[in-house]
Amino acid sequence: MNIFRLAGDMTHLLSILVLLLKINATRSCRGVSLKTQELYALVFVCRYLDLFTNFISMYNTIMKIIFLASTFTIIYWMRFHKVIRVTYDREQDTFRYQFLVLPCLVLALLLNSEFTVMEVLWTFSIYLEAVAILPQLVLLQRTNNIDNLTGNYVFLLGSYRALYILNWIYRFLTEPNYRQYLVWISGIVQTIIYIDFFYYYIKSWKNNEKLSLPA
């Protein structure tokens, strides 16, 4: 594992910790998209089915379990916690799942490296991850007073994706047979989706202003 990959994973982990901390400490999930969290849960479930079939490393197994458990914890809080669920912006979080899930499913059925259930679901999770942040970005755009921690959460998630691109470049240069076109293209699309957010995040940080995204 190279330094970019490790930094990417740690940033991903940190993003989730920031979100857990924010919701738990403030007892509020204001500005957090339940749709994005549920899409991530679907991504992790489909991708990590290999927990049962394919042991890669202890590191890999533990990280997968952490990602699954933390995402399901957030969903549980947002849906069922008696204090937190009241703070969920239900009316603003209106992105439709089917607009993301169906195209990704069709694409995964058409474009995959092997037509088996496991492989199609794995590929589906790659495509879906690329766009799963969209409901969150739309919600942020509609939120007037974006919580610092919510902004940091999205910034860390975007940074994790950018670090993964550096990881692929490193692997491409150092591992002779390392090629993953579907993963690379999805990952680049995913990172591009964050560019606009990054621009406003860095601008607000430089000017010492509160983050707000123009509608």
């Binding site: 994973d9 394919n54 490393s57 794995w122």
Partner: peptide
């Protein structure tokens, strides 16, 4: 072997 290597990323 190749399969594990291909899917070692999270």
């Amino acid at each position: 072997e190749a399969e594990a290597e291909r899917k070692d990323e999270l």
